[in-house]
Amino acid sequence: MVVQTAARQADVGTSNVPGEETILSVNNIEVIYDHVVLVLKGVSLTVPRGGIVALLGANGAGKTTTLKAISNLLQAERGEVTKGTIEFNGDKVQALSSNALVQLGCIQVMEGRHCFEHLSIEDNLMSGAYTRKDGAAAIRRDLEMVYEYFPRLRERRRSQAGYTSGGEQQMCAVGRALMSRPEMILLDEPSMGLAPQLVEEIFEIVKKLNEQEGVSFLLAEQNTNVALRYATYGYIMEAGRIVLDGAADELRENEDVKEFYLGVGGEGRKSFKNVKHYKRRKRWLA
């Protein structure tokens, strides 16, 4: 069903669907915080160019850490990738600074939005263009583009970001990332704390950006239901490992996923005693 052969996964150049080009590949990485806390225990995933891939799992599964490892933001939190490699467009990520990585087209939208609260919405967006060298005219054009995608941001362009609503801040964070002309956006919990319609709205925009601008997405989500409707492929994490992966529609039909993450299926209510934990599938040491 969803389990792939070790040989296929280990081959860095291939993606989940044969014939597609890989933009990001994470190969068996291990992350340690503060030299002692082992958070990721061998995570591998690939994102095809132009794809939307979802990284799912409960709190503390390691989704955010995975994304931060990819965008090289762990250092500031005293985390470290101790094993494995991450390649973005063929470049080894660990050798790059986070700003070089943004320049190469890989940018993260952090969990909890992280807008610059005391800056206006427009200044927030403009700060996303920090790494660009292609001139003010091109940056202005992209600002217009962001306003096209997020008309609400245009209305609030002069407001301090800290005083805008949660949805507007999430839009601002995505728009800010767009301003760097990314090829790939790592989107961490875009649905956090937002009303269901707003979540839908944000995901619609993600889809539009993916189709119209060709931006690839890796999104970490707890909202499995929504994420699997918009993504093409999904990985499920538990306790620092990937326990299951597969095409989104297959995952949606998977009995275990239904039971654990979608809250449907199974016969009647079950006690937590019966909840099974996934063991890591043998994929690397076959």
């Binding site: 933001l73 600074s97 700003n99 320049q103 610059f116 609260e117 760097s180």
Partner: peptide, 23 residues
């Protein structure tokens, strides 16, 4: 200036500043 904006951004949220590529 863009640099000045980056300084203000960094003051607001260092993590986010890093994430958008401010050096």
């Amino acid at each position: 200036t863009a640099m000045g904006r980056a300084i203000r951004a960094l003051g607001d949220d260092p993590q986010a500043a890093l994430s958008v590529g401010i050096s």
